[in-house]
Write a protein that binds this DNA or RNA. Structure first.
Lengths: 188, 188
DNA sequence: TTTCAAATACCGAACGATCGGTAAAGAAAT
DNA sequence: ATTTCTTTACCGATCGTTCGGTATTTGAAA
């Protein structure tokens, strides 16, 4: 009988889906196996260190996503408005307009709190640094640019949480619009 | 043998401690029992519906805390500056300067995502409404007041998450300071 | 091009530990 | 003596993990 054969990228994507929605503790091997269409033992073949290694692999994927969809875009040769829109659109996609949870947050709590701090911290730093550079392209001074970039990242996380309890998707969209305006408005 | 006898409020407090640090899924009955100094069966005597009922009790406690430490304070007869400081100090205490996790967030994810939405949403709404009234006392128009209150609540959540990965406590303190300034500065 | 063994990938079954939950016995309070 | 609360002891289910073995692919010798 032919057995399941699943592409690595597909496996990572499915793992991320489970981790982000169930959290690290809530992501059972049974759920991870069902999502990836692999049996538990097969997951251990690919990730000998188990759940922890899977989460690390997901974080590597996320760091790569951030580089491709944010960092690299923000230093491309298109106009600053186009770069800003591309990056914000990527974020809007990533979270499906605020409907989806953030994988970085999911891997920052519970028993995962101390396991992946270095990785999640590095990704947050990368994102902030990238948006800071963009803000400076819009003419903001360095201090203001850093503050603006931090505000964006913080508000993404905060809005995801608050919106989850209050319902809807309008908060997230409004927040992205508002931040877009703030980036473009150089002279306050 | 004399057996444990623990005050209800103490039990709630310890339950909250476990929920907020481990998350709903990560909070095992064993951990909840150890934290409260009660045996598992005793917890089931006090909370016949188990973990879910415990979380509901904790949320009732939190709603009460919000009313006492935020809502009521913000409509007291002291000056608006004093009321603002009292409320922000209460928040700073609650999260221990950003070191502690938010119980509302902890009960909004994983398998708890759909269990407590009504309660967590109501608390978020109460907080936003309270701070909105305070903002209006500072002379902000209604729309701006609502935006400012929402920004505060969102940034509290977001900063807690980002700071957890980046380390330290300076982000949280700076955020509270910044929001305090924004509330007091009526004319932009 | 065929052969076939080594390497790779997957799976069923089971491990000990821990999960949430319960029944019955025992202690404290009324 | 009755009620209320805690405790011991235990349950079946599920947890993450491992092992023995099977299917598939690879690649080099024939």
């Amino acid at each position: 009988m032919a057995y399941a054969k699943v592409e690595h990228d597909v496996v990572i994507d499915k793992l991320m889906e489970v981790f982000r929605s169930a959290g690290y503790d809530g992501a059972s091997m049974a759920a991870l196996a069902e999502a990836t269409q692999l049996k538990k033992a097969s997951l251990y073949h690919r990730f000998p260190q188990g759940k922890e290694e899977m989460a690390h692999a997901v974080l590597r994927y996320v760091a790569n996503w951030a580089k491709n969809r944010i960092t690299d875009v923000l230093v491309s040769d298109s106009t600053r408005e186009e770069r800003l829109d591309s990056a914000l659109n990527a974020i809007d996609e990533l979270y499906d307009g605020g409907r989806l949870d953030c994988i970085l947050r999911a891997l920052s709590h519970g028993s995962a709190a101390n396991l992946f701090r270095k990785e999640t911290g590095a990704i947050f730093e990368t994102l902030i640094r990238s948006f800071k550079h963009l803000a400076m392209d819009f003419g903001h001074d360095e201090q203001h640019a850093e503050q603006l970039a931090g505000e964006l990242i913080v508000k993404i996380q905060g809005t995801l949480i608050v919106q989850r309890s209050l319902g809807g998707t309008s908060m997230f969209k409004a927040m992205l619009d508002d931040m877009r305006t703030k980036f473009m408005k150089t002279n306050l």
